[in-house]
């Protein structure tokens, strides 16, 4: 009996989702609406970064080229990244960050929970740890969605606008990958069910919009990823091997 080998591309996709999302979260540091939120979004980004590091290391081992987490994070161009479009676009409003986190963290929560009992023990270890952290992220997004959606006229409008803006990018999270230990397509009902409950409780409406073209899992990205990577990779590329 042979144990099925997890495709490196699948792990790289999860790693890049977490890494790019962490970088976007970091943007809020010093810009969040209040000090507590500054800490919260930074901490959420830090959890995601930790998950990304473990996943990148594992992706490097699976592809067998000897690339380290730093090689993969800092020395790839945008066409080699495998993250979904949901996480790479700029956050134009605090509501957008919350809407995106609600969807992304709920998706991660379902995926990690399933992977935690996968036959791939490395992935199960990372996921078993991450699933507990992500529970806090989901809850943070849920509380803000309720507060903003069921808040003032202005906060309700902006939270609904944010959902409308993010919704075309939701479907890409569920692109089928039959070779993966957990096919993301199988998570669709659970994720959308959980998100839908929060949206309804917040007196908001689940948008009915056509999905975007997507293509992040195949290395096709929006113009925004290149800008994000320029900021994230600049130091490492300008000073190879630099340490603190």
């Amino acid at each position: 009996m042979t144990t099925p080998v997890t495709p490196a591309g699948f792990v790289l996709g999860l790693a890049d989702d977490a890494l790019v999302s962490a970088q976007r979260m970091g943007w809020w540091i010093s810009r969040a609406p209040e000090l507590e939120e500054d800490l919260a979004l930074a901490n959420i980004g830090l959890d995601q970064l930790g998950q990304a590091r473990a996943l990148l290391t594992y992706a490097g081992e699976l592809e067998g080229t000897g690339r380290t987490e730093d090689d993969l994070a800092y020395l790839r161009d945008d066409r080699d990244f495998r993250n979904v479009w949901l996480v790479e676009r700029p956050q134009t409003d605090f509501g957008v960050t919350i809407a995106r986190l609600l969807v992304f963290a709920t998706w991660q929560s379902e995926l990690y929970a399933a992977l935690a009992s996968s036959a791939d023990l490395t992935l199960a270890g990372v996921a078993g740890k991450a699933v507990k952290e992500v529970a806090y992220h989901v809850d943070h997004a849920r509380l803000w969605t309720l507060r903003l959606g069921d808040g003032t006229e202005e906060s309700h409008r902006r939270m609904q606008d944010a959902l409308d803006a993010e919704w075309p990018y939701v479907e890409e999270l569920f692109v089928a990958d039959p070779d993966a230990p957990i096919d993301p397509a199988t998570l669709r009902d659970a994720v959308l069910g959980r998100v839908g409950e929060v949206v309804a409780a917040a007196t908001l409406t689940v948008p009915e919009v056509a999905p975007s073209v997507g293509g992040g899992r195949r290395g096709l990205h929006t113009e925004h990823l290149g800008h994000l990577l320029a900021g994230m990779q600049h130091l490492h590329r300008s000073h190879p091997g630099v340490t603190w």
């Binding site: 507590e36 800490l39 919260a40 930074a42 901490n43 830090l46 959890d47 806090y136 809850d139």
Partner: peptide
């Protein structure tokens, strides 16, 4: 609880 996320990852405020 004033914030579920505090000065380090493991603490709330």
């Amino acid at each position: 609880e004033s914030s579920r996320f505090g000065s380090t990852a493991c603490k709330s405020l």
